[in-house]
């Protein structure tokens, strides 16, 4: 994850500038002899073998299923059907809902994560007693699997014995229990709350690290020039960390898009398929045995994410070039 951030980020001064092909940089990065090349190949080989056999082969084999009639329940006819699987996906009446849900899920989870994560990072920037312990404690959601997070929140959002309804009623905010997970609108809210709970920490940590890399002199200079807090935030803080922020957001979008676990555990896409996003819908189709259609859906996800990543990075670079 940190790598793509680095790849796209402008090369920081020093280390990266010392590329061997640009002159005599660090010693090991210069051209190496045949014996070294063999050693390097041997070092890379285990990783390549594992990823090749257990990730790339099934992925490619799975991709070609997208263009076949490939149903686990009836394997007598696995002929090519071209874009038939895609066609039947697009024709399904629920497809519109699923795409809309996916967008709501991604945007609805992302925005609160960024805003709250940013606020936490700003508050954590200045050292205080127990800050390390605090950081370790808010790291807690990361130790929990997506599935288990879904289960924890499913229990808390339980209509009858759930603690969320109980607390809301005690606070006088509602007068009767909300059927969180059996009402489509509330169910979507509930799964997004669970995802926000999980994702805030990631933003807080990435943004905090970025904030700490902004030099104090910048702030001192701004203070000398008489800039207020708000002005300083928008003129110094935000621009200084914009690259990190942009790339963290990109990673999270890809991740949230591809994250069916919480929904799978909390609602299973229900009630009545109303909380399915593309990847949970894919699970459903896989479980029904229609691997052709599921693979087609997988390819749609992959292409969408790659296009999104490409456009997003272009937009980020374009804006940077503007300044």
């Amino acid at each position: 994850m940190s790598l793509d951030v680095k790849q796209a980020a402008p090369p920081p001064s020093g280390r990266k500038a010392a590329r061997p092909d640009q002159g005599r940089g660090s010693s090991t990065k210069r051209r190496f002899n045949g014996r070294t090349a063999l050693t390097l190949l041997a070092f890379l080989a285990p990783a390549a073998v594992f990823v090749g056999i257990f990730t790339y082969y099934p992925m490619i084999a799975g991709s070609q299923m997208a263009f076949r009639n490939w149903n686990l329940n009836d394997l007598s006819d696995t002929s090519w059907v071209g874009f038939g699987n895609f066609q039947s996906l697009f024709d399904a009446p629920e497809f519109g809902t699923i795409v809309r849900n996916t967008v709501v899920w991604v945007v609805g989870s992302l925005v609160p994560q960024v805003v709250i994560g940013f606020a936490v990072a700003l508050f954590l920037k200045r050292r205080f007693r127990m800050r390390g312990a605090y950081q370790a404690m808010i790291f807690f959601p990361w130790a929990v699997s997506g599935f288990l997070i879904g289960m924890l929140f499913r229990w808390m959002f339980n209509a009858e014995f759930g603690v969320v309804n109980d607390l809301l009623m005690k606070a006088g905010l509602i007068s009767s229990p909300i059927p969180w997970l059996s009402d489509p609108g509330f169910a979507m809210t509930a799964i997004i709350i669970a995802n926000v709970w999980y994702g805030v920490t990631f933003f807080a940590i990435m943004i905090l690290a970025a904030l700490q890399s902004v030099s104090d002199e910048m702030y001192e200079a701004a203070a000398l020039d008489g800039a207020g807090k708000v002005r300083t935030f928008f003129s110094i803080t935000l621009p200084s960390i914009s690259t990190t922020l942009a790339l963290t957001i990109l990673l999270r979008v890809i991740w949230i898009f591809n994250f069916p676990d919480i929904i799978f555990a909390m609602t299973g896409g229900g009630p009545a398929d109303q909380t399915h996003i593309i990847t949970t819908y894919m699970i459903k189709i896989t479980q029904e045995g229609d691997y052709g259609k599921a693979s087609a859906l997988g390819l749609i996800v992959m292409v969408t994410l790659m296009l999104f990543a490409a456009f997003y990075l272009m937009a980020v670079r374009f804006r940077k070039g503007d300044q």
Partner: peptide, 12 residues
């Protein structure tokens, strides 16, 4: 590999 929905590889 980080962008692939895992389910595409599950069958194969």
């Amino acid at each position: 590999t980080q962008m692939i929905p895992g389910f595409i590889a599950l069958g194969p």
